[in-house]
Every structure is written in structure tokens, then in C-alpha cells.
């Protein structure tokens, strides 16, 4: 039982996809300008990750090794399109603010990476747990980055003003702020590990 939990836990801290494995950085930076977008992307990516890991691990024995990558891509793209359609149908505002990063979940290296490195070798249960852990790790990373950026860049958290009269630094919600925040956070993570 312990190993089941370990499978789930590793994605959250030790193998955190963003801070430790440095995967899926493009959406991490692009949609983390406020918490709502960050959470939306985190949930969408976790859904795709979970779906594709389950399907891929359950059909892993039927697929010849040589053509596995194209098969994985089709499975992943299918889930991404489902997410795209659901977002458009139920959350059009979120869909618009995430923009092209919804279809781009297809090329998020976390998902293909987990399919190749984990789901293709493990059972459905383990793969599902792995996907959940990685997804939550990704979501946490997004949450941390987007909270920092939203607070410093717009002076709000989840849209609510926190400190009256605080003049936000707009640069934090723009591109340079994203890169700077991520660089410093990875550095901070390294420093924690070193101690």
C-alpha cells in the first residue's frame, strides 16, 4: 500500500514536473498571470494526463513499440480536443483567456513524457496515481507562480484586492515577470535541496 501512495506523492515534490523535471514550461509561464487562469490550466492538464495515462497503460500490450509514439499522440490529442470542446461549451470566458494554450496541451512535454516513461510500462492503477500526482504537482506549481504574479502584478488574489493603496508592478504580469519568477523559484528549490 505504501508504494501506491509513493507513486502519487513523488510528482508533488521530489519529481515535481515544473521545479524538478523542468517539463511543460511554456503553459506554466504563459497562463500564470492570474490564479484563475493557472488553476484552469492545471485542471485541464490533469484531466488530459489522467485520461491519456489510463488509456495508454491499458492498451500498452496491444501497441507495437515502433509505432507507439504516434499512437500516444493520437490518444493525447483526443483528450485535449475533448477538453477544448468542454471548455468552449461550459466555460467560454476561461477558454478565451487560456487561448491557444488549450490546444497546445498536446505538446506539453509532461503528458507525452509520463506516457512514455511511466504509463507504457505500468498497470492502470499505478499509471492513474502517477498521473494524479504529476497533475497535482503541476497544478501546485502553477498556483504558486500565479499567486506571486497576480499579487505583485495586479495587487489582487483571485481578483480580490488585498492591500488598499498598493501600487502593483505591472512588469510581473508581463512576460519578463514570468521568466524571472520561475528562475528564482527554481533557484530557491535548488537552495532548499542543498541545505
Amino acid at each position: 500500500m505504501k508504494s501506491l501512495f509513493a507513486e502519487f506523492k513523488k510528482g508533488i515534490h521530489i519529481e515535481n514536473p515544473t521545479f524538478a523535471l523542468l517539463l511543460g514550461l511554456c503553459p506554466t509561464l504563459a497562463v500564470s498571470n492570474n490564479i484563475r487562469n493557472g488553476l484552469g490550466m492545471g485542471i485541464a492538464a490533469t484531466f488530459v494526463l489522467l485520461g491519456s495515462n489510463i488509456i495508454i497503460s491499458s492498451i500498452r500490450k496491444l501497441i507495437p513499440t515502433k509505432i507507439r509514439i504516434p499512437c500516444y499522440i493520437v490518444v493525447i490529442a483526443t483528450f485535449v480536443t475533448i477538453v477544448e470542446l468542454l471548455l468552449k461549451a461550459y466555460f467560454p470566458v476561461l477558454d478565451r483567456s487560456l487561448g491557444i494554450f488549450v490546444p497546445l496541451i498536446v505538446v506539453n512535454c509532461i503528458i507525452l513524457g509520463r506516457a512514455e516513461a511511466f504509463a507504457s510500462k505500468n498497470t492502470v492503477t499505478y499509471s492513474a496515481l502517477d498521473a494524479l500526482g504529476m497533475g497535482i504537482g503541476f497544478m501546485l506549481a502553477l498556483l504558486i507562480i500565479s499567486s506571486i504574479r497576480e499579487f505583485l502584478g495586479s495587487g489582487t488574489l483571485l481578483g480580490f484586492q488585498i492591500i488598499q493603496g498598493f501600487q502593483p508592478a505591472i512588469i510581473m504580469v508581463l512576460a519578463p515577470g514570468a521568466l524571472m519568477t520561475l528562475g528564482l523559484l527554481i533557484g530557491f528549490n535548488n537552495w532548499l535541496k542543498r541545505r
Binding site: L22, A175, P176, G183
Partner: peptide, 21 residues
């Protein structure tokens, strides 16, 4: 030491991106 490698690369990219603004 903690910033060597990838983190400093991001910080450099951030400064470049500021210039591109």
C-alpha cells in the same frame, strides 16, 4: 551556486524579454 545553470538562464531570458518589450 543555487542559481547556476537553468535558473540563471531564466533570469537572463527575463531581462532579454524586458528589452524586447
Amino acid at each position: 551556486q543555487s542559481l547556476a545553470g537553468i535558473p540563471i538562464a531564466f533570469i537572463v531570458a527575463s531581462l532579454m524579454s524586458m528589452a524586447f518589450l
